[in-house]
């Protein structure tokens, strides 16, 4: 019969329409469907039915641990009374070298005698170039640069707001532990293992180079069956 296909299709639309109310009823006794964390979790997961709208900004989808937005630098938690903790960055420059759009600028710190110091003097990321690829975080041997989860960066002006300097980039370790707890834990473990390996090697040939440390860290992250 001509037109049957259209009628059937409308049936699908009708089912969707009804389904949203069925879902409403299901949550009616459990604190309502809207602005309810539990309902929100179910609705956004693989079993969600009905209307799946995220009421941003009131509700926000959680970001997974591996989520990557613009990078930030990890520092120690600042000691009481101080604003900044110790930088983890050693200004080895690997992030600047792997960065595909070359959006990282690092000025290596100098000791008074002119020799390089394992600390960045200045660190800039131009987030107008950054492609959020995550290479810097992936290849950093010291876990010192990480991808942030804060995506709410809209601004009215880019001339000043879009080049992040060291102050803007630095965030304490506790922040990283907060946004990616499992990943941070896995990294802690890997660092401990690397530390142990380094101590062993030191006994053997008297010298443990930082490269070896880097090697161990990245190796363990992949080899120990760690998921992060």
């Amino acid at each position: 019969m001509y037109g049957l296909g259209i009628v059937k299709g409308m049936g699908v639309v009708l089912r969707h329409f009804i389904q949203s109310y069925v879902d409403d009823l299901k949550w009616a006794g459990k604190g309502g469907r809207y602005y309810n964390d539990e309902a929100f979790q179910v609705r956004q997961g693989p079993y969600g039915e009905g209307v799946k709208t995220v009421f941003y900004p009131e509700e926000k989808l959680s970001t997974p641990e591996r989520f990557r937005f613009v990078p930030f630098l990890v520092t120690d938690d600042p000691p009481p009374g101080q604003r900044w903790g110790h930088d983890w960055c050693t200004s080895c420059g690997i992030c600047a070298k792997v960065c595909p759009p070359q959006c990282i600028w690092i000025e290596r710190g100098k000791q008074p005698n002119g020799r390089p110091k394992p600390e960045p003097e200045k660190f800039f990321i131009d987030i107008d170039l950054c492609m959020n690829c995550g290479y810097c975080a992936e290849f950093c041997p010291f876990d010192a640069i990480k991808m942030d989860h804060d995506y709410e960066l809209a601004s009215y002006d880019r001339s000043s707001a879009h080049i992040h300097d060291k102050e803007r980039l630095s965030k304490p370790l506790s922040y990283w532990r907060e946004i990616a707890p499992k990943k941070a834990e896995a990294e802690d473990l890997a660092r401990q293992m690397a530390e142990a390996a380094k101590a062993k090697k030191k006994d053997k040939d008297g010298e443990a180079r930082e490269e070896r440390l880097a090697e161990a860290v990245s190796r363990q992250l992949y080899y120990q069956g760690l998921q992060y």
Partner: peptide, 8 residues
């Protein structure tokens, strides 16, 4: 120009 004397 990015490292070690990178001036943005």
């Amino acid at each position: 120009s990015r490292w070690p004397d990178g001036s943005v």
